[in-house]
Amino acid sequence: MMNSAALPASDAREGALADVAVLMPAYNGQDDVARTLASFDEDATIYALVVDDGSTPPIVAPDVPGMRVEVLRMPKNGGIERALQAGVEALAARGFRYAARIDAGDLAAPQRLAKQRARMQAEPAIAALGTWTQVINRAGEPLFMLRPSADARTLRRTRLLRSPLVHPSVMLRIDAVLAVGNYRVQYPAAEDLDLFLRLMERYECANLPELGLYYELNEGGISATKRRRQIVSTLRLQLHYLNVLNWRDWAGVAKSMLHFVTPYRTLQKMKRALFANSST
């Protein structure tokens, strides 16, 4: 059984972001949760749902000016896939239209939510909208910039070659996420790519070509601690969606195989060198 203080009913919410909720899964890291939520800078009240994935001690909702924070407690640690699944269902039940993802430790750029909501309101076909992302270290120093394509057609062509969206930067249309089956546990540590590929079968996915997120490179994060599981899940997805006539799909498979045999720290050094000229 999950416990949560109820978010306000949809007819009781006010402001330009009344139908938007920040969605953050968290396992321990109380200080990171508070720091991340405090980074949001918007001209309207913000609602945030923190899904506590069995933390010890439990996550406590921080007091953040201009923000209403609620905590949804999972009965035990079940992984980010189940936490996000429960979070989306909870937000849908409370009447929210959009879920803005972020992870504990990351930081939001000013007006990120307002900009994403405006674009998604203007283009209802978009089910997931990401942003460019500045990768930083624990000290906040810039390492490299991720600039995924802003064009939906380009993202479709390259979806298996590189991740089409940076997951913690994404705003999701909740009804679309539920329509394709929500987050799933079938592809551990690659739940984001699984969701994006299913969304692309029925909707559009795109990116705002501007900075929306500061992503903290954390060696304790999923990309490091569950790296082999993530690569295996990614390979399974690539083979499932493979278009044999698209050379980019084959290149994506080869890239995943290379990642499988390349040490994590070596891979990060390669990324820093590759994107050095893009760092800001």
Rank of each mutant, 00 (worst) to 15 (best):
R94A: 15
K115C: 11
P148N: 08
R184I: 15
A128Y: 13
A118Q: 09
L161A: 11
F144N: 02
Y98M: 03
R138P: 02
R119V: 15
A108Q: 14
R159G: 05
T133G: 01
R138Q: 12
L146T: 09
A122L: 10
R138Y: 05
R101Y: 13
I174G: 01
Q116D: 13
N137L: 02
A189P: 04
V185N: 02
N137F: 03
A109E: 03
A90C: 15
A118R: 06
L165D: 01
Y183A: 06
L178Q: 10
G95M: 07
Y98V: 11
G95F: 07
I126C: 10
Q121C: 14
P188N: 05
I136R: 01
L146S: 03
Y183G: 00
A100F: 12
A114G: 13
L91K: 03
L178C: 07
A104Q: 13
L143C: 09
S169C: 02
D103S: 04
A127C: 10
Q111R: 15
R159L: 06
D151Y: 12
P188D: 00
H167C: 03
D106S: 01
V166M: 05
Y183R: 03
R97K: 14
Y98A: 03
A109L: 07
L129F: 11
A189M: 13
R162A: 10
G105Y: 06
R101V: 07
R159T: 12
V185P: 01
P188K: 00
I174K: 00
M120R: 02
A139H: 04
A86F: 08
R173P: 00
D103G: 04
A152M: 01
P124I: 12
A92T: 12
Y187R: 11
S169T: 08
D175S: 14
S169I: 02
A122E: 07
I126G: 00
R157Y: 05
L161N: 14
M120W: 07
R157T: 09
V170F: 02
A150Q: 12
R162I: 07
A150C: 08
E89I: 14
R157D: 15
I102C: 07
D106I: 07
R117D: 05
A114R: 14
R117M: 11
D151K: 05
L146H: 01
R138N: 07
